[in-house]
Design a binder for these strands. Structure first.
Lengths: 355, 355
DNA sequence: GTGAAAGCGCTAACAA
DNA sequence: TTGTTAGCGCTTTCAC
């Protein structure tokens, strides 16, 4: 019987089952080279002793830690929270643990990059931080382990992200199909570095307009910080006072779109009657605000990232620069309506409503 | 020079610095028994080799993993996300890593409790899951490591939570001070198990009424699931159609309060003119909705939990059943106003507005 | 199919 | 102040 105040070891289990430690190890790892009866004895002994394998000891000899690390500025975000919440069970199913490095400000981040604690304590790193400097990225390149970029494209590195261009294109087409021709685009400024998606979405918007033969107009592209209601109100005001004011507005994110709607309603400007508003993300606020939006699924992204991590860790000849690009999906809600005099849906509309 | 495709070990550093591995170990752990010059040599060698200590190997001999684990049903929640986001840096500062076990559904949770992977892979466990069964709690009691309950009271175990009774009492007093006498209380049903807080808040509400000599009225206490707008609307409808309808409503959580406001406004019932609404939590939606609320700080809770964990791990004679009870704070906003004919603030009001 | 022995990278006790 | 030695709990040859 093992000492009371200590965790039982394989030796304890071995003794109890009347076998050697090697056999216990083989049994518990499910190697088939163990006879059924011995296996049963070992499993019973392990259960009775409440034995759990020590990752620490195992990793010392295998060289694998059984841990996937996540680097993120925060967990308090719809997107990241959802993605990581999916990631956890996903990794667990593959027998891996999830270690989280939260670096809300520059101090913590600098510390992380200086010590890079992940390097010895994880088999792979998922990067949820969007605004890394070149220097930081370079540091990660030396990491001797798979580094996967989430929700951002990283040249030469594995990454997982949604097709922002295509999503924004489809969203803009939806507005075009509703008869809108003067469509504004509202960007965010200085967000926590979603810059990659931001640009892509603008590109998709421009593509759709160009394809439809609608001229681009710089006056229709405005920007403000998501949290700054004042700037948002001003930008919206400027748009509406244009000689040829927009009849629809595509906000780069749902939170921004919701702010716009809130601003407009406060000024007694009806949405969607006076201005159709389209968002991006399908953030919970979109449903609350009855906002038409282009949905991305953080859960799918988390799952894909987890799969990618596992495959890169376990399969030595997995493509080390694999990109997983996930689709988006238009969710029509009440904030976008046909342009009154414009003629309503002009084809393609029926297909969309299935979403 | 160490082989290319492998992490350098202490032996590599030792060789490079011309000392023994023990000296490297001592240096890197900051033990003072190392001469300044040797220390400098070792540190330089370690830096040049890009060396990081392997927790796995160290823990094998020290018996400590350097890891604090968190058990949570999700990370996609304002409260948990904020708390864990604070916890991360906090632990990092104490040299510990943060491991997260996410168990969104019963399957994962059953698996967690069956294997209890935390037992060999962490020094302490923070429990963010609220609705554990007795059996599960018992299992955690055997865990041979500090288990800290967050946002819930656990008899005989260390825990961290806010003073819900006092918060609700103060909130109710705020409404009483505004002249309200018919004050409804809106509970949530079958939430992910915030049952502990829920009951406490009801108690605080009742206490305040009783102290003020206002009779309790069961008709004024209603309940609905947070997400079920239909039930919420019905419950509110019933309240307003009472012969002696309430003039104020205290919703147990901000999200519920926001739903109530939304419902009322939709039915053209003015808030706060017709009904003052008070929430609890200071969830971001409270600011959005201009909701008076009783704030709790998930950041403070996370921080306190981290401190508690560290002290229990490092200080063998720390009180093993310490409770940290944090205060709440009333945040007056636009959703609560004096009762028109009731006479307005009746003292104590000035003190509150400082919040 | 099973056991014995070596050793993963580190720290702790002891010796110098 | 520093080096030597032993060993943490496990996996992995290699015999049998």
């Amino acid at each position: 019987m093992p000492p009371a105040q200590r965790h039982p070891t394989m030796a304890d289990v071995a003794e109890r089952a009347g076998v050697s430690a090697s056999t216990v190890s083989r049994t518990l790892r499910g190697l088939s080279t163990v006879s059924p009866e011995v296996r049963a004895r070992v499993e019973r002994a392990a259960r009775e002793l409440n034995f759990a394998v020590s990752r620490q000891a195992a990793s010392l000899v295998t060289g694998k830690t059984g841990v996937v690390a996540v680097l993120t500025p925060t967990l308090n975000s719809w997107f990241i929270g959802s993605a990581v919440s999916t990631l956890g069970p996903q990794l667990r199913a593959a027998g891996m643990d999830l270690l989280v490095y939260v670096t809300p400000d520059m101090t913590e981040r600098a510390d992380f990059f200086e010590r890079l604690p992940a390097r010895r304590n994880a088999d792979a790193l998922l990067v949820f931080s969007f605004d890394l400097t070149e220097e930081e990225t370079a540091r990660l390149d030396d990491l001797q382990m798979p580094v996967i970029y989430v929700s951002q494209h990283a040249e030469g590195c594995p990454s997982v992200y949604v097709d922002d261009v295509e999503g924004a294109r489809r969203g803009t087409q939806h507005l075009l199909n509703l008869g809108h021709r003067r469509i504004a685009f509202f960007q965010t400024i200085g967000a926590s570095g979603f810059a990659f998606s931001s640009n892509e979405r603008l590109v998709g918007y421009q593509q759709a307009l160009t394809e439809a033969g609608v001229p681009l107009d710089d006056d229709l592209v405005v920007a403000a910080p998501v949290a700054d209601k004042r700037s948002i109100a001003e930008a919206v005001g400027e748009l509406l006072s244009l000689r040829d004011a927009p009849t629809a507005l595509f906000a780069e994110q749902d939170e921004l779109a919701a702010s716009v709607i809130w601003t407009l309603r406060k000024s007694r400007i009806d949405v969607p009657e006076r201005l159709s508003v389209l968002g991006f993300d399908d953030h919970p606020i979109a449903e609350w605000s009855d906002l038409t939006t282009i949905a991305q699924s953080p859960e799918d992204i988390g799952r894909a990232a987890g799969e990618l991590a596992c495959s890169l860790v376990n399969d030595p000849d997995a493509d080390p620069a694999q990109h997983v690009i996930l689709p988006t999906r238009l969710i029509p809600r009440g904030s976008t309506v046909p342009l009154p005099d414009g003629g309503g849906e002009m084809g393609g509309g029926a297909a969309e409503s299935g979403a």
